[in-house]
């Protein structure tokens, strides 16, 4: 860990600080690194070290309950866990589920939030009441969201079945969390519900900050509401969109709490995601080596998703 910051120091000496004030002495070139170092140290300890450790473990057959026999690294067996994963149908299924889940929740959350923000931007009364209503899901921890939706969709005592019964729309109780694809949809609904407030607030702020004159001019020119939205609002709120999506991507693994509580990845792996499968292998099955190999896949997935959005964000910053 100390080597990391030392290396940074070297770089600083070579590079200097481009935008630093003209009279800055050579001592001050250290300044940004002094500011960043504490953050880097904490992150190195809490994130980077465990990830490196996981990478190492993923090349061993480490089993939690018999560490002395299994925490052994051998070159000929180092790829065993990855080979096992490659041949594991459940792993591929969980990967597919995860990708579908991310694609659907991110897109739908965004579209709903966009629509909601456009609607709220036009509201003339009760703004603060509505904003408070909107923010209600933010106060629910993902764990609570999970419990709450698991309860709503429960087949025997759930509110959804209960309401449908009372309204006479249903005769047989439906096991929402068991059936396909309703189990997945229920989890997605819960996650989308949880995501919307933050996205909406950011997009709303973006919409409200747009210059009204542009819209007036467009209206006078005879542009329809849709045209105004498409050609003025959308391009102008693009940076806000990217911020919103980045915030979302950073928190995407929160969905784990929801899935774990609503279905635990079951039944029959129907809602298995890469996070639940890893957890199942690591803790329930004590197969820490195999689980580490899989968590590497989860790390790569998360990193790529975030990297992609950040590139976009940095690009859009250059434009502005």
């Amino acid at each position: 860990m100390t080597t990391t910051s030392a290396k940074q120091g070297e770089k600083a000496n070579q590079a200097g600080v481009v935008s630093a004030p003209r009279h800055s002495s050579s001592r001050t070139t250290w300044f940004p690194f002094i500011l960043i170092a504490p953050s880097l140290i904490v992150i190195a300890l809490v994130v980077i070290y465990p990830v490196l450790y996981s990478i190492y473990v993923s090349f061993t057959p480490f089993h939690l309950l018999r560490p002395e026999q299994t925490f052994v690294f051998t070159t000929e067996k180092m790829w065993n866990n990855y080979i096992k994963l490659w041949n594991d149908d459940v792993f591929w299924k969980s990967l597919r589920n995860t990708v579908i889940f991310l694609a659907v929740t991110v897109n739908v959350s965004y579209l709903v939030a966009l629509a909601l923000s456009q609607l709220l931007a036009r509201v003339s009364r009760g703004q603060s009441v509505m904003r408070t209503l909107l923010m209600v899901p933010m106060m629910f921890a993902p764990v609570l969201v999970g419990f709450q939706f698991a309860w709503f969709f429960n087949a025997t005592v759930g509110l959804v079945n209960n309401a449908l019964f009372s309204l006479g729309l249903m005769q047989e109780p439906k096991a929402w969390l068991v059936d396909q694809p309703t189990g997945m949809i229920a989890i997605m609904l819960a996650t989308i519900w949880m995501n919307i407030p933050m996205l909406t607030i950011i997009l709303l702020a973006g919409t409200l900050s747009l210059p009204q004159e542009t819209f007036e001019a467009a209206r006078v020119d005879g542009a329809s509401a849709w045209q105004r939205f498409k050609h003025i609002t959308m391009p102008l709120i693009k940076p806000f969109t990217l911020i919103a999506l980045t915030v979302l991507s950073l928190d995407i693994a929160r969905a784990y709490d929801v899935v774990r509580i609503m279905t635990g990845g079951g039944p029959a792996h129907r809602t298995e995601m890469i996070w639940t499968y890893t957890g199942r292998l690591a803790i329930r099955n004590s197969q820490f080596g195999l689980a580490s190999a899989m968590s590497m896949v989860a790390v790569v997935l998360g990193v790529f998703f975030t990297l992609y959005l950040f590139r976009q964000l940095i690009k859009s910053r250059v434009v502005y």
Binding site: I41, P67, Q69, F71
Partner: peptide, 25 residues
């Protein structure tokens, strides 16, 4: 935590020591 991280590399050896030798499986 700096200490923890530096000491952390000993950790596998330590894990080997704690539980006894019985090959349960």
């Amino acid at each position: 935590l700096v200490l923890a991280a530096c000491g952390g590399t000993d950790e596998p050896a330590d894990t080997v020591e704690t539980p006894d030798e019985k090959p349960a499986a």
